[in-house]
Write a protein that binds this DNA or RNA. Structure first.
Lengths: 231, 231
DNA sequence: CTGTCACTGTGGTCTAACCACACAGTAATC
DNA sequence: GATTACTGTGTGGTTAGACCACAGTGACAG
């Protein structure tokens, strides 16, 4: 077993045993190296991996943001991983879109009314109405969909949704260039968002799920995913 | 931007541009370091991250297994990430099980008859009948479920299924200790597996999905997930 | 022809040093 | 006395250089 894996194991055990909790601070790299009788290099490689997994955040200097602290950001970590695999052509964009439909439909059907995530979603819709251009609109759109997924209350599904959205984020930006008329499309998307949120608030999960599926598939079909996968 | 991130960006670009394909070999660490004008340490940190993401595999020595080659194993990578986050208590096991039900039901409903993955699944069932003990049975069970998911033909769903299974693998091992009578449970699980596969082969996706959902939820309910999350 | 042995290139590890940063305490200044 | 400037300390970030184990390759001696 390689040295940095040993360090990784040790840290994972600290987490499992509860000796290291969310928000907690790891020992300094030098201290850990001495404690585990390994070089600082190996400790750093382990920390890098944890950072890539969204388990810790490393900060220089001193004070509140300094040191290596335990965080919980699975979404961005899974997103990076998926993005890399998309780059290797191993994960087709079409499969990601299909998975998005699957997860978001499920989430829409089970979204709980009155939770903070839904209020955030409603707020985002207002901001999207005021968005002047595509580059302002798209990030809000992404956040709306992730907020909707969070409303279902399953943290794994939320994380996966966020990661899927993140993995094809750049891609979505390119796709909008293929659209014949952005203003028309944008208006339609906004209307569909409202309809989805209304269905959820009316406790009509089935309809919400249908609308979400049509919403996502409609966008990618219009933008030409499948027929024109890598423009 | 940190140095190793720069290296990561460079490698990701090589992948996106197709200059580096699946099965391809990265330049040696020393060569890359010189080419990018960074230290070998930074190159190594980048490679570590890619390795953790299941994008590359590093092998010492020389010959076919040597060097750093591009692979595509998103499943194990996502699994490690999820496992770590379960360790931080940020992702409840119950949410993972729920997501498994969601993905596997979907996959069972859309499984294509006649694909290699289904044949593999059938073969695994025979091996499970011959399994002498739990420790032989469980890995086969895991592979059966992943094979079933693969039969639906969506690589993202397959990868996520494999990762979910991997994230709670150790956990499943502990749970079987809670079962009152393993032999009885095992016989039931085997029968349920057969029923699922039969439904799929009969093109009865709806029934297959129902059976899968009941199968998974039944097992975890019997083993006590939810009422006894961290024994 | 065969077995041995040095060579070469790979990743894996370690040491020791320096840097930039941010805060904390202290000293000099107004 | 209050304010400012300055070290001191500890953090991660980066680098250079060395050595190790490993696995093929090829030359050489038998």
């Amino acid at each position: 077993m390689r040295t940095h894996e040993l360090v990784l194991q040790w840290i994972e055990k600290q987490l499992s045993d509860g000796d290291l909790a969310l928000g907690g601070r790891l020992p300094g790299e030098r201290a850990m190296a001495e404690q585990l009788q390994v070089s600082r290099t190996s400790v750093r490689e382990a920390v890098r991996i944890l950072e890539a997994m969204g388990v810790v955040r490393a900060g220089v200097g001193s004070g509140k943001d300094a040191g290596t602290v335990v965080i919980a950001e699975p979404g961005s970590a899974l997103g990076s991983t998926l993005r890399l695999h998309v780059a290797t052509r191993h994960l087709p964009v079409a499969d990601i879109v299909e998975t998005r439909v699957l997860l978001e439909s499920w989430a829409a059907e089970r979204a709980k009314v009155g939770v903070p995530a839904l209020e955030e979603a409603a707020e985002l819709l207002d901001q999207m109405d005021a968005a002047p251009d595509i580059d302002t609109f798209l990030p809000l759109d992404a956040r709306f969909h992730v907020a909707l997924a969070r409303a279902a209350g399953n943290s794994v599904v939320s994380a996966m949704m966020a990661s899927l959205r993140g993995a094809i984020e750049n891609y979505a930006g390119e796709l909008t260039g293929n659209l014949p008329d952005w203003d028309t499309t944008c208006a339609r998307l906004r209307a569909e968002h409202r309809a989805i949120l209304t269905a959820v608030n009316n406790h009509d999960g089935g309809k919400a799920a249908e609308l979400v599926a049509a919403h996502i598939q409609g966008f990618y079909a219009e933008a030409g995913v499948g027929s024109n996968p890598t423009p």
